[in-house]
Amino acid sequence: MKKFQTLLLFLSVFVLLALTLVFFFDYPWLLFLREAISSSLLSVCPHFSSEILKIPCESLPSFMRGMSVTVMLTLCLLFVGFALAVPVTLGQLYGPAPVRWLMSAYEKFFRAIPILVLLIFFAFSLKINLPAFLSAVIVFGLHSAAYQSQIFRGTIQSISVGQIAAARAIGMTRLQAIRHIVLPQAFRLAIPAWSNEYSSVLKDTAFAFTVGLVELNQTGVQVANYSRQLFIIFFTIAIIYLILTLVGTRLLESLEERVRIPGLTVHQGAAHGHG
């Protein structure tokens, strides 16, 4: 049963990623694949007489395109956010006073301002002419880095100071101690909170329309503009967000199990660890 669930999970991750790649990039051979998938999606849709089901069925290829943008943006922003959050956290915790101050200021600034304001400010006030997707990745990435840095700060501070002392005592440098002792433990502890960040930014990406990006939600708006079947269109979109959230968080849960330190973390249902 457990094996079957894992298989199902990896299969859905694979399908979602494959769809994302196919519908996101405009390479000629991918366009061909996209056509094939779209027409097979449409052919399995029966030809309903009722408008209600016809519209979302016919729009499925558009929704796939929108979903691919949402997924790609989420993955990129999480990656950028992670890559920035780690040095921000380390600077904030271990850096000399000016670095600590700078990192705190960064983190406070980006957590204080709504993502919508940041996006509009970046796109229209700064007048930086970047492709919409790139703009979105930068703004969302900077925003998420601030939040992720606090996730890591929390888990790093929960590691006992004795761990670093022990590492230093065998002659490790501070950096080695952080790299080999602190971070591997802190990252493990960060997965549950990080999964929260994933499901939160996934839905935040709906704001990317402000920089001109047609992601999943905006696709719905466009389809609704000519079909006027608001309920069924946004119901379909809600289902797609639900699937993305469930698959992503389940994937992180499975990662959490995989890297769990034997004997240390309390298993579900067993309130008593030993030791």
Partner: peptide, 16 residues
């Protein structure tokens, strides 16, 4: 520090 072994009261083994 490599030449001085240190044993802590609360062990401080690397948990992971």
């Amino acid at each position: 520090r490599q030449q001085i072994g240190f044993v802590f009261q609360d062990f401080n083994l690397f948990q992971h």
